[in-house]
Design a protein around this nucleic acid. Sequence first.
RNA 1: GCACCCGUAGCUCAGUUGGAUAGAGCAUCUGACUUCGAAUCAGAGGGUCGCAAGUUCGAGUCUUGCCGGGUGCACCA
Length: 687
Amino acid sequence: MKLIELQTSLRERVAQTAQGKFGVALDSVTAETPPRTELGDLAFPVAFDLARRVKQATGEKKNPRAIADELAGDLRLMPNVARVEVAGAGYINVFYDRTKLLIEAAIGESASASQTHIAPHASSKKSIIEHTNINPNKAAHIGHLRNAVLGDTFVRLLQAAGETVEVQNYIDNTGVQVADVVVGFMHVENMTLDDVKRVDASLPSDKGFDYYCWDLYARVGLYYRGGTSDGAEMPERLALRAQALHDIEAGDNPTAKLADYVATRIVEQHLKTMARLGIKYDVLPRESEILHLKFWDSAFERLKASGAVRLESEGRHAGCWVMPLEAHASTDEHEADKIIVRSNGTVTYAGKDIAYQLWKLGQLDKDFYYRPFFNLQENDNHQVWMTTSEPTVNDAPRFGNGATIYNVIDSRQSYTQDVVKRGVAAVAPEIGEAASVHLSYEMVALSPAACEELGLKLSDADKARPYIEMSGRKGLGVKADDLIDRLEAGAYSETSSRNPETPEAERRHTAHTVAIGALRYFLLKWTRNSVIAFDFTEALSLKGETGPYCQYAVIRANSLFRKLDPDAIQRAQVLLGQANDDDALKGKFASFINNENGTDLWTLWSLAARLDEVIGICVRTHEPTHLAKYAFELAQGFNAFYDNKQNRVLEEPDEARRALLITVAAYTRAQLTRALATLGIDVPARM
RNA sequence: GCACCCGUAGCUCAGUUGGAUAGAGCAUCUGACUUCGAAUCAGAGGGUCGCAAGUUCGAGUCUUGCCGGGUGCACCA
């Protein structure tokens, strides 16, 4: 029996007893893991609640401790329960039959040794996750990495929980940011499309087109202000941007062709950067198609038909289609109303987003056409599709039509996301707001020290601030590829000094794996709504609470198992299994488990057994960091086990105890490896 | 002005739907490599959980009010 099943059955029993003996129907029974293993394996602080509810219902005063005693008596009769204690003012502490559970688990493990991951539920509906969504006009920076790693990890979490997932990366290829770079090429550098292609071809592969545009974008920002960062914006130069934006949206002209080249090339670069982190996408929906295929027209009809938007005939919003939102405490007229269509007939960002969200939910009677996008070597056989306006003949999968949509977007867009969610719910009440989930996260800013390292001169006021916001317009930020390069360099020198005899290619690969482990963990160790004040020292660290720490624990286990027979794990599991029918052997195992050292072994094993529960918590709370913390805790547990002189596997003389140690170590290694894989972190053979 | 987020050890942060003695990492100090790999481990010091009320058997967690910091509230995207 798995621990999670045992937990469920105990909860149900508590609920039954509460109903039977006290006449109280508990809709949910709180169960928690006690702070220390000495206090048991599962605790129910339910007696306090029951005492209150009995008093409410009957007026009878009952001592929580007396209630706990009655509940405990029932729980003692449950299988796999060794004993139950009532502690404190009324805690019910359940102690599992640890020996029996370990033995049963060993039998299960040896039987399903080949099964490594859960297959998706046949009946499960598709979830869509949209993440990355970087403006295709310059290199990706660490803020974008946070988005992508958060999104990709959530994808892995959902898959680990057995769900079917589609990954979308929305490309805003017709927005102002692309227009800015186009203005830069056309009016700052006076280049034609052919010139741009020539420059692109001449750039080094490690500092390519995305880096070039990064600098150009910052220069355009200056250009608008007449060359100085604090100058006033010049209307005639801003007009160039407006013109470019107009031409890009219209399409089929030199400006639009240049914009398409820029956006497409930058998307390629972004995908290469993300591939370094093991991040892949299924489909890249582009804004240009949403425009050309007139998604908005369809969405607008539905919005009007549902009454979600109305045309204002007077007031300051006269001539606009607005979505009414409740005005909070304000007596003024509809201050909170959101404009969806401007008085000149053009649609706002929120409007376009509603159309796109409706498509994602299968609520639009339109679809994109698709073509295969270029394939990266790193992506093996995984095909990325890009939307297109022209009909195509190919075997593209059916995209969109998801049951739940997760949008990974930073918290600054909470308001707009809320508008989108409400708009969708108004159009399709049967779907409601719950189908649209905003996976919001706080920004990545720079620590003052990081700014200085990047060569930015700070005022005294800025130095006193906890963090400074990045600015693409100012070219202030840490480029993703630069950071990965630095991490790889650090990991390479570290692994080279430890494994000088290892071939160069393998050391490079190891350095890469360690670097990605460090980076992904670094971005996942914070809760979503905590601002990351990026600091180089902290981000480049390979010690302490880091990805490499977790990887290292697995490496030590790998090293240990290399020195054992290849079938040692299997043999150990079989031996434990034999104890099921052999009371003498079972007693022997029990004597190993039911002492102080055995408690440590059990604590580690039961922690390892909690992986699926933790994945469930992450999915439910939309918070991947719980898994990162769990992986670290499990690695800590393994390292403590490993360093304990009583647990020297290779020197253990007693065959049974050795089998126990091997089983615990092997299970911990397997679960830790799975946890890390779900975080997108691989483990090299050596490091 | 309104809405949302944050305030926990010197620093950076965790803290599951309210539960037992508030935890990690970094930094500081002390110890452990002839050791299944020291990217490690064992230990020490370090706290009015921003302040004040309230609800509760029980509050870092919930409510209210203050204080301090951040973000968002455009016919921008």
